[in-house]
Nucleic acid binder design. Structure first.
Length: 819
RNA sequence: GUGGAUGUGCCGGAGUGGUCAAACGGGACGGACUCAAGAUCCGUUAGCUUACGCUUACCAAGGUUCGAAUCCUUGCAUCCACACCA
């Protein structure tokens, strides 16, 4: 078999596609629009990895398929260019983040182009471009106008050595990533927040009607976390301290209260005598990451203060604990050790009283014999006038009771928190605010946007922006007096929360985007990316779209109709690909060896693209072998006649592949393609059939199919040809007969079996689907079975069907009953 | 702990009540070609049998059914996510 020069073919067609701009999208087209989007990459210095290749191949196949199907396809690409790694490179190697990012982007573009993706490169986007982040700032100011952006004190990780705030990922085992002997401290800063919680209800509600993976929707539901309960006031030193609980029915069992270690007013509760103990406890907390806190054992310390239980009037101790979240509810919880597992463990550890107030349905429980928390249903005991009520009923009654005493109320809590966007670092969007001594916090006027990042800053100690005094010092936009810029920048998730909208009109200098264009393209029809973004990016984007809708810029409420997560790609042998293990497979090296089309085909033919799978050198060799086979068949092909079998197979394949691509079952599509090719090379085929085969293969292997399309004598590109139609008649006629006969054969078999068991059968009843009724001929069947045969439609109200066997009827298979 | 997913032949992985000893790919084995290797092509790949066929098989044990990889129950194992949510 002749060697195929994949590289030459790839270069040739990539150049032609670019010259003819066949993938450039235009909103003036009369065709129906279709927007395919893959999550844009963070351009890291290490270049494109195989996971990117998989992600973009999945999207590219979809986009190319839709183009062939006659849609006006938008398939753009860009870079999420602001972020921490660029800044880390500046600290470690001394490159300016801007240079680092520029180089990385250039590198990424070259690599992406070699993979032959059908991007509209004229729409390329770069979030580190002031022309882009200007609109981040614009949205921020709009949110400020709407009251959605606000400042509040919040806790962060602080490295006293670097004098800077650390991201959770920069905290390693409670220590700074750069100073392994320096313990990270908790520090409170005033920071900017976006009030995503205003949209909590809608974010939750819409999920039900969205065509997103159920798993993702569940994760989001959990993340938003709506819970119903009560807010109850406990009295501490004559002040009201509210707590939120979902179990007001257990209020009589409260024996202590726990306040979060990060509670703003913790100091007020700590007495002189207990100060030392509490401080020692606080030192043990490693970072503000709640994931880190979660790993810790439930621990705490007595604050020295007491609270009054509003119903029993008992005096109960207040503890500070590492398992209470400061930002949820009021940052304080009432603890019922008898009926909550964490409270139980905590009470046992610190020898606090345990009081049973719910008696289980099926056994006796009391405060002496309890060995674990009982969290189930039951009736109230030890609860004053509420004794004997079911705990469900008690929830309502107790809330009513507290409301009358003005000591509590019904309450709904979301676990979703407002989104803290302040980052004390350089390579992000500057927050467009100014601090004036006289006027206070003043927004930068719209006409002065963008607030550009100054290039001259020093890296290594503290927030780099603090090192450029010239940039910081400005005149107050209100009074013209001395003022200073906000030096915090925005979380980079801000940049990616609306980029898909900007693709509709990426070069607009005057507006965030032209509304007509945005309305035309949005929402995204298919969005493809990793499941790790299920909560953060995919919730923030939903929030942004809702906000932009509310200020009249778009009319859709959700960013994407359909969402797909690709699986994780592991190294040969199942381990994670990582540099330190030396098992990384580079897309570029692979292409050089086997060709881009082989790589694309392999990536989608090992497993369903949503499942994790292992890289396999043997596997890609198999894909490459298949393409060589195809190529050599076309080279030596002599025009022949297509057999009916090949025609049937072809038409079946067209239909199936359409379905498979729509549902991302690419693996099945590649199997059908192999089968079709087998029957072509076995039975011979005419030119028309070969052309159609190439078109079916084109979304997966665009280069080689262009080449062979041309070899067959076609002018123009196969990539924007018209997808073949499957001719229904050719598919079914033969098969249908078969199926009917098989179905009858089946029934016949069963009759024989039952008779050999000794049962007598004289009547056979068949229940068939209405549209199949005509195929059944009672006379013929009577002859075959030698018995009376009755045929009913399944929905016939008068049918004789003593055991409901008609429910078993399916297409091609009747239900049956014998007597 | 909570939530979710999965368990199929040597391996990856289809298959959701009869067309299943189970697609497709990989591997292994045998053969053809070749001085030879590679590539390519053909065949075999649960057991017994020349074959018809029979037996054993889709994590395990029960169950439903004329019929189960597929439906139900229980158990076991593996994987993933998470913000201990009061």
């Amino acid at each position: 078999m002749a060697e195929v020069d994949f590289e030459k073919i790839e270069k040739k067609w990539q150049k032609k596609w670019e010259e003819e701009k066949i993938f450039y999208a235009d909103e003036k087209s009369k065709k129906k629009k279709f927007y395919v989007l893959e999550m844009f990459p963070y351009p890291s210095g290490t270049g494109l990895h195989m996971g990117h290749a998989l992600n973009y191949t999945i999207g590219d196949i979809f986009a190319r398929f839709k183009l062939l199907k006659g849609f006006n396809v938008l398939h753009p690409m860009g870079y999420d260019a602001l972020g921490l790694p660029a800044e880390n490179a500046a600290i470690k190697v001394g490159t300016h983040p801007e240079e680092y990012t520029k180089n990385s982007m250039k590198n990424f573009t070259t690599q992406l182009k070699k993979l032959g993706f059908s991007y509209d490169w004229s729409r390329i986007l770069n979030t580190s471009d002031p022309e882009y982040y200007k609109w981040d700032q614009w949205i921020f100011l709009k949110m400020l106008e709407s009251g959605l952006a606000y400042q509040k004190e919040s806790v962060v990780n602080w490295c006293p050595e670097c004098k800077t705030v650390l991201a959770n990922e920069q905290v390693v085992d409670g220590k700074c990533w750069r100073h392994e002997n320096t313990k990270v401290e908790s520090k409170y800063f005033k920071q900017w927040f976006l009030k995503i919680t205003d949209y909590a209800d809608e974010l939750l509600r819409n999920l039900d009607n969205m065509e997103w993976p159920e798993k993702t929707k569940n994760m989001q539901k959990h993340w938003i976390g709506k819970s119903y309960g009560a807010e109850i006031d406990f009295i501490v030193n004559d002040n009201k301290w509210p707590v939120f609980t979902t179990r007001p029915d257990t209020i009589y069992g409260v024996t202590f209260v726990v306040v979060s270690a990060h509670h703003k007013e913790l100091e007020k509760l700590v007495t002189k005598e207990q100060k030392k103990e509490v401080d020692n406890f606080l030192k043990k907390i490693k970072s503000v990451s709640e994931k880190d806190i979660a790993v810790l054992e439930k621990e705490g310390a007595f604050t020295g203060s007491y609270a009054i239980n509003p119903v029993t009037k008992e005096k109960i101790p207040i503890y500070v604990g590492n398992f209470v979240v400061a930002d949820y509810g009021s940052g304080m919880v009432m603890a019922v050790p008898a009926h909550d597992k964490r409270d139980y463990d905590f009470a046992r550890k610190y020898k606090i009283k345990i009081k049973v107030v719910i008696n289980p349905v099926d056994f006796e429980l009391n405060s002496e014999n309890i060995t674990e928390a009982y969290v189930g249903e039951g009736t109230l005991i030890n609860s004053g006038k509420f004794d004997g009520l079911s705990n469900e009923k008690a929830k309502e009654e107790i809330i009513k009771f507290l409301e009358n005493l003005k000591l509590g109320k019904k309450s709904i809590q979301f676990r979703l928190k407002d989104w803290g966007i302040s980052r004390q670092r350089y390579w992000g969007t500057p927050i467009p605010m100014i601090y004036c001594d006289k006027c206070g916090v003043v927004p930068v006027p719209f006409k002065n946007l963008p607030v550009k990042l100054p290039k001259e800053v020093k890296f290594g100690k503290g927030n780099p922006l603090l090192t450029n005094e010239k940039w910081i010092n400005v005149k107050c936009p209100k009074c013209g007096g001395k003022a200073r810029r906000e030096t915090d920048t925005m979380d980079t998730f801000v940049n990616s929360s609306w980029y898909f909208l900007r693709y509709a009109d990426p070069k607009n200098k005057n507006k965030i985007f032209d509304s007509q264009k945005a309305l035309y393209w949005n929402p995204v029809d298919v969005y493809i990316g990793g499941a790790e973004h299920a909560c953060m990016h995919l919730i923030y984007s939903r929030f942004y779209v809702k906000f932009l809708r509310d200020i009249g810029l778009v009319n859709s409420s959700e960013p994407a109709n359909k969402l797909f997560h690709q699986g994780m790609l592991h190294a040969d042998g199942g381990e994670k690909m990582s540099k330190s293990k030396g098992n990384v497979v580079e897309p570029l090296a692979t292409i050089k060896k086997y060709g881009t089309d082989s790589l694309r085909l392999f990536l989608v033919s090992v497993a369903s693209p949503d499942k994790d799978f292992d890289w396999s050198e043997k596997g890609i060799q198999g894909s490459s072998r298949f393409l060589k086979k195809v190529y050599s068949y076309f080279e030596n092909f002599k025009e022949g006649k297509s057999s009916p079998e090949v025609e049937i197979k072809l038409n079946n394949t067209i239909k199936n592949i359409e379905e498979y691509i729509e549902t991302f079952e690419y693996r099945k599509a590649t199997i059908e393609l192999r089968e079709l090719f087998d029957s072509i090379s076995d039975g011979g085929a005419g030119k028309k059939v070969l052309e159609k085969f190439l078109q079916l293969l084109n979304p997966f292997c665009p280069h080689i199919t262009e080449e062979l399309w041309e070899k067959l004598g076609n002018k123009g590109f196969i990539s924007n040809s018209v997808w073949p139609k499957s001719e229904e008649i050719k598919i079914k006629e033969n098969l249908k007969k078969d199926l009917y006969e098989k179905a009858i054969e089946n029934v016949f078999e069963v009759v024989k079996k039952v008779e050999t068991r000794g049962e007598k059968i004289s009547k056979v009843y068949l229940y068939v689907l209405p549209f199949e009724l005509e195929k059944y001929n009672p006379e013929n069947l009577k002859k075959k079975f030698g018995k009376e045969v009755f045929i009913y439609r399944v929905n016939d109200a008068k049918k004789h069907d003593p055991e409901g066997k008609s429910k078993k009827a399916r297409p091609g298979n009747p239900g049956f009953w014998f007597e």
